[in-house]
Design a protein around this nucleic acid. Structure first.
Length: 349
DNA sequence: AAAGCGGGGTC
DNA sequence: GACCCAGCTTT
Protein backbone atom coordinates (compact mmCIF):
# COMPACT_ATOMS: atom_id res chain seq x y z
CA UNK A 1 0.00 0.00 0.00
CA UNK A 2 1.04 3.54 -0.57
CA UNK A 3 1.71 5.98 2.27
CA UNK A 4 -1.69 7.64 2.08
CA UNK A 5 -3.59 4.37 1.81
CA UNK A 6 -1.80 3.00 4.88
CA UNK A 7 -2.80 6.10 6.80
CA UNK A 8 -6.41 5.87 5.72
CA UNK A 9 -6.54 2.20 6.65
CA UNK A 10 -5.16 3.08 10.07
CA UNK A 11 -7.68 5.91 10.35
CA UNK A 12 -10.68 3.70 9.70
CA UNK A 13 -9.74 1.69 12.78
CA UNK A 14 -8.46 4.39 15.08
CA UNK A 15 -10.21 7.66 14.24
CA UNK A 16 -11.41 9.76 17.13
CA UNK A 17 -15.09 10.68 17.18
CA UNK A 18 -15.19 14.46 17.25
CA UNK A 19 -18.27 16.64 16.78
CA UNK A 20 -16.83 18.77 13.96
CA UNK A 21 -16.27 15.62 11.93
CA UNK A 22 -19.99 14.98 11.71
CA UNK A 23 -20.65 18.07 9.63
CA UNK A 24 -19.80 19.63 6.29
CA UNK A 25 -20.90 23.04 7.58
CA UNK A 26 -17.96 25.31 6.82
CA UNK A 27 -18.90 27.62 9.68
CA UNK A 28 -18.63 24.84 12.23
CA UNK A 29 -15.45 23.50 10.69
CA UNK A 30 -14.00 27.02 10.81
CA UNK A 31 -14.93 27.31 14.48
CA UNK A 32 -13.23 24.04 15.30
CA UNK A 33 -10.10 24.82 13.31
CA UNK A 34 -9.52 28.22 14.87
CA UNK A 35 -10.14 26.84 18.35
CA UNK A 36 -7.70 24.01 17.74
CA UNK A 37 -4.82 26.22 16.61
CA UNK A 38 -1.99 25.49 19.06
CA UNK A 39 -4.59 23.85 21.28
CA UNK A 40 -5.19 20.23 22.19
CA UNK A 41 -8.50 18.63 21.26
CA UNK A 42 -9.37 17.94 24.91
CA UNK A 43 -8.83 21.58 25.82
CA UNK A 44 -10.72 23.01 22.84
CA UNK A 45 -13.69 20.64 22.76
CA UNK A 46 -15.83 22.28 25.47
CA UNK A 47 -15.28 25.68 23.87
CA UNK A 48 -16.40 24.35 20.50
CA UNK A 49 -19.59 22.98 22.06
CA UNK A 50 -20.35 26.32 23.72
CA UNK A 51 -19.72 28.34 20.56
CA UNK A 52 -21.92 26.25 18.25
CA UNK A 53 -24.63 26.23 20.87
CA UNK A 54 -24.50 30.00 21.33
CA UNK A 55 -24.05 30.99 17.66
CA UNK A 56 -25.89 28.71 15.27
CA UNK A 57 -24.40 30.29 12.16
CA UNK A 58 -21.82 32.82 11.06
CA UNK A 59 -24.32 35.68 10.92
CA UNK A 60 -25.29 35.18 14.55
CA UNK A 61 -21.59 35.11 15.33
CA UNK A 62 -21.02 38.33 13.39
CA UNK A 63 -23.93 40.08 15.10
CA UNK A 64 -22.39 39.56 18.53
CA UNK A 65 -20.11 42.11 20.17
CA UNK A 66 -16.40 41.46 20.35
CA UNK A 67 -16.72 41.44 24.14
CA UNK A 68 -19.18 38.54 23.88
CA UNK A 69 -16.81 36.53 21.72
CA UNK A 70 -13.89 37.17 24.06
CA UNK A 71 -16.04 36.24 27.02
CA UNK A 72 -16.84 32.86 25.50
CA UNK A 73 -13.18 32.53 24.60
CA UNK A 74 -12.10 33.28 28.18
CA UNK A 75 -9.40 30.91 29.41
CA UNK A 76 -8.49 29.46 26.04
CA UNK A 77 -5.55 31.76 25.33
CA UNK A 78 -4.23 33.36 22.14
CA UNK A 79 -7.13 35.79 22.24
CA UNK A 80 -6.29 37.30 18.85
CA UNK A 81 -8.00 34.19 17.50
CA UNK A 82 -11.27 35.37 18.98
CA UNK A 83 -10.81 38.93 17.79
CA UNK A 84 -9.89 37.77 14.29
CA UNK A 85 -12.86 35.40 14.16
CA UNK A 86 -15.14 38.28 14.91
CA UNK A 87 -13.63 40.33 12.06
CA UNK A 88 -13.82 37.36 9.70
CA UNK A 89 -17.44 36.69 10.60
CA UNK A 90 -18.39 40.28 9.80
CA UNK A 91 -16.63 40.05 6.44
CA UNK A 92 -18.56 36.88 5.63
CA UNK A 93 -21.80 38.54 6.71
CA UNK A 94 -21.22 41.78 4.83
CA UNK A 95 -19.30 40.70 1.73
CA UNK A 96 -20.35 37.07 1.22
CA UNK A 97 -24.05 37.34 2.10
CA UNK A 98 -23.47 35.27 5.20
CA UNK A 99 -22.37 32.23 3.20
CA UNK A 100 -19.12 30.89 4.60
CA UNK A 101 -16.56 30.45 1.77
CA UNK A 102 -15.12 26.99 1.21
CA UNK A 103 -12.42 27.63 -1.38
CA UNK A 104 -8.79 27.98 -0.33
CA UNK A 105 -8.16 31.23 -2.18
CA UNK A 106 -11.03 33.06 -0.50
CA UNK A 107 -10.50 31.50 2.92
CA UNK A 108 -6.89 32.58 3.15
CA UNK A 109 -7.87 36.23 2.77
CA UNK A 110 -9.90 36.13 6.00
CA UNK A 111 -8.33 37.32 9.27
CA UNK A 112 -7.00 34.50 11.39
CA UNK A 113 -6.95 32.00 8.52
CA UNK A 114 -3.46 31.05 7.32
CA UNK A 115 -2.21 28.28 5.07
CA UNK A 116 -3.01 25.44 7.45
CA UNK A 117 -6.55 26.56 8.26
CA UNK A 118 -7.42 27.39 4.64
CA UNK A 119 -6.27 23.92 3.60
CA UNK A 120 -8.18 22.29 6.44
CA UNK A 121 -11.51 24.05 5.82
CA UNK A 122 -11.40 23.75 2.02
CA UNK A 123 -10.58 20.06 2.16
CA UNK A 124 -12.96 19.13 4.99
CA UNK A 125 -15.94 21.17 3.83
CA UNK A 126 -15.47 20.91 0.07
CA UNK A 127 -12.97 18.12 -0.61
CA UNK A 128 -10.62 20.58 -2.28
CA UNK A 129 -7.22 19.00 -2.90
CA UNK A 130 -5.19 20.98 -0.36
CA UNK A 131 -2.66 19.26 1.88
CA UNK A 132 -2.63 20.35 5.51
CA UNK A 133 0.68 21.00 7.22
CA UNK A 134 0.47 21.28 11.00
CA UNK A 135 2.58 20.13 13.91
CA UNK A 136 1.37 16.54 13.50
CA UNK A 137 2.14 16.40 9.79
CA UNK A 138 5.59 17.91 10.32
CA UNK A 139 6.37 15.21 12.86
CA UNK A 140 5.08 12.26 10.82
CA UNK A 141 6.89 13.35 7.67
CA UNK A 142 10.12 14.25 9.46
CA UNK A 143 10.29 10.80 11.03
CA UNK A 144 9.09 8.77 8.09
CA UNK A 145 11.48 10.41 5.64
CA UNK A 146 14.24 11.25 8.12
CA UNK A 147 14.24 14.97 7.38
CA UNK A 148 16.53 16.92 9.69
CA UNK A 149 15.83 20.40 8.36
CA UNK A 150 14.23 22.43 11.18
CA UNK A 151 10.47 22.53 10.72
CA UNK A 152 10.27 26.18 11.77
CA UNK A 153 12.86 27.40 9.27
CA UNK A 154 11.98 28.87 5.89
CA UNK A 155 13.88 26.09 4.17
CA UNK A 156 12.12 23.43 6.21
CA UNK A 157 8.72 24.87 5.49
CA UNK A 158 9.40 24.66 1.75
CA UNK A 159 10.62 21.08 1.91
CA UNK A 160 7.75 19.82 4.05
CA UNK A 161 5.16 21.68 1.99
CA UNK A 162 6.42 19.95 -1.14
CA UNK A 163 6.36 16.49 0.43
CA UNK A 164 2.95 17.05 1.97
CA UNK A 165 1.58 17.98 -1.46
CA UNK A 166 3.11 14.92 -3.12
CA UNK A 167 1.60 12.62 -0.52
CA UNK A 168 -1.91 14.07 -0.60
CA UNK A 169 -4.55 11.65 -1.84
CA UNK A 170 -6.28 13.81 -4.45
CA UNK A 171 -9.22 11.43 -4.54
CA UNK A 172 -9.84 11.71 -0.80
CA UNK A 173 -8.31 14.97 0.48
CA UNK A 174 -10.52 15.27 3.56
CA UNK A 175 -9.99 11.68 4.63
CA UNK A 176 -6.25 11.80 4.02
CA UNK A 177 -5.78 15.06 5.91
CA UNK A 178 -7.78 13.83 8.89
CA UNK A 179 -5.89 10.55 8.84
CA UNK A 180 -2.37 11.97 8.92
CA UNK A 181 -3.24 14.46 11.65
CA UNK A 182 -4.95 11.88 13.86
CA UNK A 183 -2.07 9.52 13.29
CA UNK A 184 0.36 12.21 14.44
CA UNK A 185 -1.77 13.15 17.41
CA UNK A 186 -2.44 9.70 18.87
CA UNK A 187 0.14 7.33 17.38
CA UNK A 188 3.23 9.13 16.08
CA UNK A 189 3.23 11.28 19.23
CA UNK A 190 6.04 13.65 20.27
CA UNK A 191 6.87 11.52 23.32
CA UNK A 192 6.64 7.75 23.49
CA UNK A 193 5.30 7.11 19.99
CA UNK A 194 3.77 3.68 19.43
CA UNK A 195 6.46 2.43 17.07
CA UNK A 196 6.11 -1.20 18.13
CA UNK A 197 2.56 -1.33 16.76
CA UNK A 198 3.21 0.81 13.70
CA UNK A 199 2.38 -0.26 10.16
CA UNK A 200 5.31 1.86 9.01
CA UNK A 201 7.86 -0.27 10.88
CA UNK A 202 9.44 -1.57 7.68
CA UNK A 203 9.58 1.81 5.95
CA UNK A 204 10.05 4.48 8.63
CA UNK A 205 13.49 6.06 8.24
CA UNK A 206 13.73 7.43 11.78
CA UNK A 207 12.86 4.05 13.31
CA UNK A 208 15.43 2.19 11.22
CA UNK A 209 18.12 4.69 12.26
CA UNK A 210 17.01 4.97 15.87
CA UNK A 211 16.30 8.67 15.41
CA UNK A 212 12.66 8.75 16.42
CA UNK A 213 13.23 10.93 19.50
CA UNK A 214 15.54 13.27 17.57
CA UNK A 215 12.91 14.13 14.97
CA UNK A 216 11.48 16.52 14.05
CA UNK A 217 14.20 19.13 14.55
CA UNK A 218 13.02 22.52 15.73
CA UNK A 219 14.91 25.77 16.25
CA UNK A 220 14.48 26.70 19.89
CA UNK A 221 12.91 29.96 20.95
CA UNK A 222 14.73 32.38 23.14
CA UNK A 223 14.16 32.57 26.86
CA UNK A 224 11.26 34.27 28.56
CA UNK A 225 11.44 37.66 30.17
CA UNK A 226 10.28 38.52 33.68
CA UNK A 227 7.58 41.12 34.38
CA UNK A 228 6.07 42.32 37.63
CA UNK A 229 2.38 43.23 37.72
CA UNK A 230 0.85 45.04 40.69
CA UNK A 231 -2.95 44.94 40.60
CA UNK A 232 -5.14 47.26 42.64
CA UNK A 233 -8.56 46.26 43.89
CA UNK A 234 -10.73 49.30 44.58
CA UNK A 235 -14.25 48.74 45.78
CA UNK A 236 -16.92 51.39 45.99
CA UNK A 237 -19.89 49.84 47.80
CA UNK A 238 -21.15 47.16 45.39
CA UNK A 239 -18.90 48.20 42.56
CA UNK A 240 -15.28 47.54 41.67
CA UNK A 241 -12.85 49.42 39.44
CA UNK A 242 -11.94 47.52 36.27
CA UNK A 243 -9.56 48.32 33.44
CA UNK A 244 -9.62 47.24 29.79
CA UNK A 245 -6.27 46.33 28.27
CA UNK A 246 -5.19 48.06 25.07
CA UNK A 247 -3.12 47.18 22.03
CA UNK A 248 0.48 46.17 21.76
CA UNK A 249 0.73 43.76 24.67
CA UNK A 250 -0.65 40.51 26.00
CA UNK A 251 -4.39 40.02 26.65
CA UNK A 252 -5.52 42.76 24.27
CA UNK A 253 -9.10 43.97 24.97
CA UNK A 254 -9.51 41.83 28.08
CA UNK A 255 -10.50 43.20 31.47
CA UNK A 256 -8.44 43.29 34.65
CA UNK A 257 -7.83 45.56 37.63
CA UNK A 258 -5.91 48.83 37.46
CA UNK A 259 -2.29 47.82 36.98
CA UNK A 260 1.14 49.16 37.84
CA UNK A 261 3.94 47.30 36.10
CA UNK A 262 7.41 47.42 37.63
CA UNK A 263 10.85 46.05 36.85
CA UNK A 264 11.12 44.26 40.16
CA UNK A 265 8.98 43.11 43.06
CA UNK A 266 7.43 46.06 44.91
CA UNK A 267 6.76 46.36 48.62
CA UNK A 268 3.84 48.34 50.05
CA UNK A 269 6.03 51.40 50.76
CA UNK A 270 7.42 51.14 47.20
CA UNK A 271 3.90 51.30 45.82
CA UNK A 272 2.73 54.09 48.15
CA UNK A 273 5.61 56.29 47.05
CA UNK A 274 5.19 55.54 43.36
CA UNK A 275 4.48 58.66 41.33
CA UNK A 276 1.89 57.02 39.11
CA UNK A 277 0.13 55.48 42.11
CA UNK A 278 -0.10 58.82 43.89
CA UNK A 279 -1.38 60.54 40.77
CA UNK A 280 -4.25 58.06 40.59
CA UNK A 281 -5.06 57.26 44.20
CA UNK A 282 -3.54 60.12 46.22
CA UNK A 283 -0.80 60.14 48.83
CA UNK A 284 -2.91 59.01 51.78
CA UNK A 285 -4.42 55.76 50.48
CA UNK A 286 -4.24 52.56 52.51
CA UNK A 287 -2.80 49.39 50.99
CA UNK A 288 -3.20 45.73 51.95
CA UNK A 289 -1.86 42.66 50.21
CA UNK A 290 -4.78 40.43 49.18
CA UNK A 291 -2.71 37.86 47.36
CA UNK A 292 1.02 37.43 47.64
CA UNK A 293 3.10 37.34 44.52
CA UNK A 294 2.13 34.46 42.24
CA UNK A 295 3.90 33.38 39.08
CA UNK A 296 1.98 33.15 35.84
CA UNK A 297 3.80 31.58 32.92
CA UNK A 298 3.14 32.53 29.31
CA UNK A 299 4.99 31.01 26.38
CA UNK A 300 7.27 34.07 26.13
CA UNK A 301 7.22 35.72 29.54
CA UNK A 302 6.98 35.08 33.27
CA UNK A 303 4.56 37.37 35.05
CA UNK A 304 4.84 37.85 38.79
CA UNK A 305 1.53 39.28 39.99
CA UNK A 306 0.64 40.77 43.36
CA UNK A 307 -2.90 41.86 44.29
CA UNK A 308 -3.39 44.82 46.59
CA UNK A 309 -6.54 46.21 48.11
CA UNK A 310 -6.67 50.01 48.03
CA UNK A 311 -8.69 51.99 50.54
CA UNK A 312 -9.06 55.59 49.48
CA UNK A 313 -9.36 58.44 51.94
CA UNK A 314 -11.23 60.59 49.48
CA UNK A 315 -12.25 60.20 45.85
CA UNK A 316 -10.19 58.88 42.99
CA UNK A 317 -7.67 61.54 41.94
CA UNK A 318 -7.49 60.41 38.36
CA UNK A 319 -9.60 57.83 36.53
CA UNK A 320 -7.91 56.56 33.38
CA UNK A 321 -9.98 56.53 30.18
CA UNK A 322 -9.98 52.73 30.10
CA UNK A 323 -11.16 52.41 33.70
CA UNK A 324 -14.75 51.90 34.79
CA UNK A 325 -16.63 50.95 37.93
CA UNK A 326 -18.46 47.68 37.42
CA UNK A 327 -21.18 46.20 39.63
CA UNK A 328 -19.89 43.09 41.38
CA UNK A 329 -22.88 41.14 40.11
CA UNK A 330 -21.84 42.01 36.53
CA UNK A 331 -18.22 40.98 36.96
CA UNK A 332 -18.92 37.53 35.53
CA UNK A 333 -19.97 39.06 32.23
CA UNK A 334 -16.58 40.61 31.51
CA UNK A 335 -13.94 38.78 29.49
CA UNK A 336 -10.97 38.41 31.80
CA UNK A 337 -7.64 36.66 31.47
CA UNK A 338 -6.61 33.73 33.62
CA UNK A 339 -4.68 35.73 36.20
CA UNK A 340 -7.81 37.74 36.98
CA UNK A 341 -10.52 35.11 36.95
CA UNK A 342 -8.40 32.78 39.02
CA UNK A 343 -7.95 35.51 41.59
CA UNK A 344 -11.69 36.18 41.57
CA UNK A 345 -12.51 32.51 42.03
CA UNK A 346 -10.29 32.38 45.08
CA UNK A 347 -11.78 35.56 46.56
CA UNK A 348 -15.29 36.01 47.83
CA UNK A 349 -16.54 38.70 45.49
C1' DA B 1 13.70 35.84 9.42
C1' DA B 2 12.29 36.60 13.98
C1' DA B 3 9.30 37.93 17.52
C1' DG B 4 4.82 38.22 19.79
C1' DC B 5 0.84 35.98 21.26
C1' DG B 6 -2.04 31.78 26.35
C1' DG B 7 -3.01 28.17 28.71
C1' DG B 8 -2.61 23.42 29.68
C1' DG B 9 -0.61 18.70 29.41
C1' DT B 10 3.33 15.34 29.42
C1' DC B 11 7.50 13.47 30.86
C1' DG C 1 12.22 22.66 33.41
C1' DA C 2 11.73 21.58 28.52
C1' DC C 3 8.75 20.60 25.03
C1' DC C 4 4.47 20.52 22.55
C1' DC C 5 -0.28 21.51 20.98
C1' DA C 6 -5.37 20.81 14.10
C1' DG C 7 -0.77 28.49 13.79
C1' DC C 8 -1.35 33.45 12.54
C1' DT C 9 0.16 38.17 12.36
C1' DT C 10 3.33 41.79 12.76
C1' DT C 11 7.87 43.66 12.62
Amino acid sequence: MKFGEELQAWYRQHKRDLPWRETKDAYKIWLSEIILQQTRVEQGLPYYVRFVERFKNVVEFANAEEDDILHLWQGLGYYSRGRNMHKAARIVRDQYQGVFPVDYQTLITLPGIGEYTAAAISSFANDEAQAVLDGNVFRVLARYYGIETPINSTEGKKIFTAIAKENLDHKHPALYNQAIMDFGATHCKPKLPLCEFCMFRPSCYALSKGQVDQLPVKLKAKTSKDRYFNYFILKDNDRILMSKRGEGDVWQNLYEFPLLESNYSLSIPDVLSDEWFISCFGSDAELHVLQQQTKHILSHQNIYATFFEVRLKGDLIQKKSNWDYVFLKDLDKLAKHKLIFTFLERSNF
